[in-house]
Design a protein around this nucleic acid. Structure first.
Length: 255
DNA sequence: ATGGCCGTGTAACACGGA
């Protein structure tokens, strides 16, 4: 079973690019973030023609998440309880006995911005919610907007203490780990520096100025079945003249 | 040199992203 997560940065602008990737990689279950469209605008027909059904939790213009699956899936959660004010950022579905959650975690903007404590509170609510849903095989994949460790940033020396790089944010990732959700990439690749996001500006991708902020977290029942995890760097590049998202997909192969 | 790019709303630029 091949699973994936991907922040597409606008599904209407990215649809052809996403279809290109689905045909090339043939994942079974995919979490998508930053759809930037309403549920009514979601292109179900296009995905059905590609062999996927979808469950969505969208909103106008911003945020928005969805899960694609080649097999039937049943929604069990729309939105993180108590956190509706921060937008549509979580959806959970059961597929093939796996509980698959996709999250688009708040950005926070900067440590002095009023959104920063809201980001921390959102993560606290996420941990509380997941503790009740950590039994059996479960995945939480998405854009977490946190660099968990120094190795996950292209420039920890300059950015330590700034947004994505604070001890408070890193403690939230640790709490998710302690709730039973482990970072599958880091579990299989303890020493490898690999990024999942690069700024569009200034040639950041080609300069190696990236961050690893997109993860597939799995319970032990999933981690023990995980054969490989990788970041699909090629799909951070233009494909057939189509513009990429600023995030690359993250994939995992489960036994 | 702290901006450079991109998507969306809305109809020229503002805002958010990370």
């Amino acid at each position: 079973m091949r699973i994936a997560t991907w922040n597409v940065n606008g599904l209407r602008a990215r649809l052809d690019f996403v279809m290109h990737w689905l045909a090339a990689r043939e994942p079974d279950v995919v979490g998508l973030q930053e759809l930037k469209l309403t549920d009514e605008q979601f292109p179900h027909d296009d995905f059905e023609q590609a062999g996927y059904r979808a469950v969505t939790h969208g909103q106008k213009a911003w945020n928005g998440v969805a899960i694609l699956s080649r097999k039937p899936l049943e929604v069990t959660q729309l939105g993180l309880p108590g956190q509706d004010a921060l937008g549509s950022r979580l959806v959970t579905a059961k597929v093939e006995g796996l509980t698959f959650t996709t999250v688009y975690c708040p950005n926070g903007k900067s440590t002095s911005h009023e959104d920063y404590p809201r980001k921390l509170a959102w993560f606290d609510a996420l941990a509380a919610h997941l503790r009740e849903h950590a039994d059996g095989p479960a995945i939480v994949g998405g854009d977490f907007n946190i660099c968990p460790e120094a190795i996950d940033s292209w420039n920890e020396e300059r950015l330590a203490g700034q947004i994505f790089h604070t001890d408070e944010e890193r403690a939230r990732m640790q709490t998710l780990h302690e709730a039973g959700f482990r970072d599958l990439f880091r579990s299989l690749h303890p020493e490898e520096q690999a990024f999942s996001w690069w700024d569009y500006r200034g040639g950041a991708f080609h300069r190696g100025h990236g961050l690893r902020i997109d993860f597939l977290l799995g319970t032990e029942a999933v981690r023990s079945r995980t054969r490989e995890v990788w970041i699909d760097r090629d799909y951070r590049k233009k494909q057939d003249g189509l513009t990429a998202s600023d995030h690359a997909p993250v994939l995992a192969e489960l036994e």
